[in-house]
């Protein structure tokens, strides 16, 4: 195992940021840490990068202990913090030269790990980093994290605040890096990005709720799930909230997702109930869950959300 996290806990005052988190990542894996703000993603990444000490437990990366071997560890890590932390008043080229020199390297635009990404940045190489668009900043930060040929890459929400086009491009780059046997741990609050990972950990309130392949997460979703299409979304939601056979009901974009208390509750029965409530023009069809449905189901399992 390239990354081993063993019962790591960390508290800030009364807030338990991480609660006995254990997981491991294989060499060359693209591993996603998926959860909302405040789930503990950044805390875990800061512990792995030796920037923060856990209260309990330990972490090992490429055989190096994050506490004892921090100096050696930092040389083999590429880290992209959540906040853009390159020098805004240095140009693209100057940032790359600077980060290369820290690791005793020279910046080479043709270096195989950064060549393809830098090709997109090259037209703006004289531009100040602070004047790049969000997507371009992320590409530059990724280049800087790769410039010393790290063995492990740790990326803290690289796609937050970036538009849909740049997000897709960024994931395409990560998929390419996978070919180079670099182990990548990447965090994101966007559930839909889970499908781009080999495996994901779903994290909420400092606890890992599930670790699986994206397909495995969806396969382990047990309840019957129905998609309800209606022009009267709000009225239908209200009606189903007070329905006896409702286990859960929530808006899901243009439709409503509905889970009955047990599998014997037929769509017909639900339809009849809604008709009695005066809600017509409803279509109820079985639906395939996505990662968001799974995440919510796991949250409901863990505890009632407050």
């Amino acid at each position: 195992m390239e990354i081993v996290i063993d019962t790591v806990s960390k508290a800030y005052g009364n807030t338990q940021a991480l609660d006995e988190v254990s997981m491991s990542v294989s060499r060359g894996e693209l591993f996603g840490l998926i959860g909302p703000d405040g789930a503990g993603k950044t805390t875990l990444m800061r512990i792995l990068t030796s920037l923060l000490l856990p209260d309990k437990g330990r972490a090992e990366l490429a055989g190096l202990d994050s506490r004892k071997d921090f100096k050696a560890l930092r040389n083999i890590l590429g880290y992209m913090p959540g906040r853009f932390s390159l020098y805004q008043d240095l140009s693209v080229e100057e940032n790359l030269t600077f980060f290369a020199s820290i690791f005793g390297e020279k910046f080479d635009p043709d270096f195989y790990l950064i060549r393809d990404i830098y090709a997109q940045l090259a037209p703006f190489k004289k531009r100040l980093a602070g004047r790049l668009s969000g997507g371009m900043k992320q590409k530059l930060a990724l280049c800087c994290a790769l410039i010393h040929k790290p063995r492990i890459l740790i990326l803290d929400e690289p796609t937050t605040g970036v538009d849909a086009v740049s997000r897709k491009e960024f994931w395409d780059m990560l998929s390419q890096l996978r070919q180079e046997q670099i182990t990548t741990l990447v965090s994101t609050p966007y559930m839909d990005e889970a499908v781009r990972c080999d495996r994901v950990a779903l994290i909420q309130a400092g606890k890992i709720m599930d670790i699986n392949t994206p397909a495995g997460v969806v396969d382990s979703f047990k309840p019957e799930l129905y998609s309800i299409a209606t022009p009267h979304i709000y009225q239908t939601l209200l009606a189903l909230k007070e329905y006896n056979d409702t286990y859960s009901v929530y808006p899901f974009g243009q439709v409503i997702h509905f889970i009955p208390t047990d599998a014997s509750v037929s769509p017909h029965k639900v339809q009849d109930y809604l008709t009695k409530k005066g809600i017509e023009a409803v279509s109820i069809t079985p639906a395939l869950p996505n990662i968001e449905d799974c995440f919510m189901e796991l949250m409901q399992d863990e505890h009632t959300n407050g």
Binding site: G35, P36, F295
Partner: peptide, 21 residues
Amino acid sequence: TGGVDPVTRRQFWEMIYEAAS
């Protein structure tokens, strides 16, 4: 929105639906 868990996000949209209704 942004950054909140999927349950909280949906509770927020329900409030929006209510206001619109």
